[in-house]
């Protein structure tokens, strides 16, 4: 299943963001990647892409462009979301550096998975105002999953080409599984 920029635009639409046909670049946002002196975050988008390679199912491809388009669009015009996303990424990066001795981006997929499990993401409550771990679940892991599963391609992964959150029209609900 290949994610496309169209999927990213659909996912952005599901959070109320229209791209208006304007191509945004990572340099347009995330102008200061480090916060609180906890760790240095070279590139928030690269870290989100690295996280998506773990969080997204293995049969998904086209992750880089999808995540970049979505994440950049998501934080444009939303400084609070940008700041909190960077804070959560910084905490993730700090844990990777402290416990695994390397930047999250440079860890192997298994090591990235281990970072999430060690942090307890699987049982953390997604809470935008919660602890560092709860914010990682909300702003990073669930953010990526929300983007994926409100996009047509993400829905198709589980047999659902018009998932809730995506305004995909009135045909799919009338179709059977073999249509």
């Amino acid at each position: 299943m290949e994610l496309s920029r169209r999927d990213a635009i659909a996912a952005l639409a599901a959070v109320g963001i229209g791209t208006g046909g304007v191509a945004l670049y990572r340099s347009d946002v995330f102008d200061d990647g480090s916060t609180d002196g906890e760790a240095t975050l070279d590139d928030p988008v690269d870290t989100m892409i690295a996280l998506a390679t773990v969080v997204y199912p293995s049969e998904v491809s086209g992750i880089d462009e999808f995540v970049e388009t979505y994440v950049v669009g998501r934080v444009e015009d939303d400084e609070t979301h940008e700041r909190r996303t960077v804070q959560a990424l910084t905490h993730l990066e700090g844990y990777a550096s402290d416990e695994f001795g390397d930047s999250f981006v440079d860890l192997s997929p298994d090591e990235r998975d281990a970072v999430l499990r060690d942090l307890g993401i699987q049982s953390a409550r997604p809470n935008p105002d919660g602890s560092d771990v709860e914010r990682i679940r909300y702003y990073l892991v669930n953010e990526l999953l929300y983007a994926l599963f409100t996009s047509p391609t993400g829905g198709e992964l589980v047999g659902h080409e018009n998932p809730p959150g995506h305004g995909g029209g009135l045909d799919s609900y009338q179709r059977g599984p073999d249509a």
Binding site: V54, V55, Y56, L116, I121, Q122, S123, P126, V141, N142, L145, Y146, L148, F149, T150, G154, G155, V158, H160, P163, P164, G165
Partner: peptide, 11 residues
């Protein structure tokens, strides 16, 4: 799917 994905805790 999106409700399960965001609530399940797996990835």
């Amino acid at each position: 799917p999106v409700e399960i994905a965001l609530g399940d805790g797996s990835w």
